[in-house]
């Protein structure tokens, strides 16, 4: 990138980042656990989901992206110790139990890591205008006029 091109706010930077690409099935499995409605997304909706996540990651410092990759790898493999399977092969209830363990972990760093991942998933899902419409959110720049 040329030095005078702003590192953020570059819409063309929204291409599938390595942070996400190699973890695609895992990220989708996590997303369906965090937002059960995600299980009904079609390929186009998943593409929008990923575009949002990628764009958001592109705006963040590189160190954060590295931490995310590390965290994803841990989520992928740690369930083998507890359940004998990688995350994506777990039953929905097992997935939920595993993620709840991270969310409520005694170590703050792990809680924060899960919070960051959960935030990305929620952005990918609810950042899509279709998801906002589906929950009945209809804010309109015309305000009261559009409402009445």
């Amino acid at each position: 990138m040329p030095a005078t091109e702003h590192p953020t706010r570059n819409p063309s930077a929204a291409q599938l980042s390595p942070a996400l690409f190699s973890f695609r099935p895992l990220v989708r499995a996590i997303a369906c656990t965090i937002v059960p409605e995600a299980a009904a997304l079609d390929e186009k909706a998943w593409a929008n989901f990923e575009t949002l996540i990628d764009a958001a990651l592109g705006d963040r410092p590189p160190a954060l992206q590295r931490r995310l990759q590390l965290f994803l790898r841990a989520i992928d493999w740690l369930p083998v110790v507890r359940f004998g399977h990688r995350f994506a092969s777990l039953q929905p209830a097992q997935r939920a139990r595993f993620l709840a363990g991270l969310e409520n972990h005694t170590v703050q760093l792990i809680r924060s890591g899960f919070w960051g991942l959960r935030t990305l998933v929620l952005l990918g899902f609810y950042g899509r205008p279709e998801a906002a419409a589906a929950i009945g959110y209809k804010a309109d720049p015309r305000g009261w006029e559009a409402f009445r």
Binding site: T33, I34, P36, A96, E103, R118, T119, L122, G127, A131
Partner: peptide, 12 residues
């Protein structure tokens, strides 16, 4: 929607 979703704790 996204900010609201982020502010609610938990998941599922």
């Amino acid at each position: 929607p996204f900010i609201t979703a982020k502010s609610l704790a938990g998941f599922g």
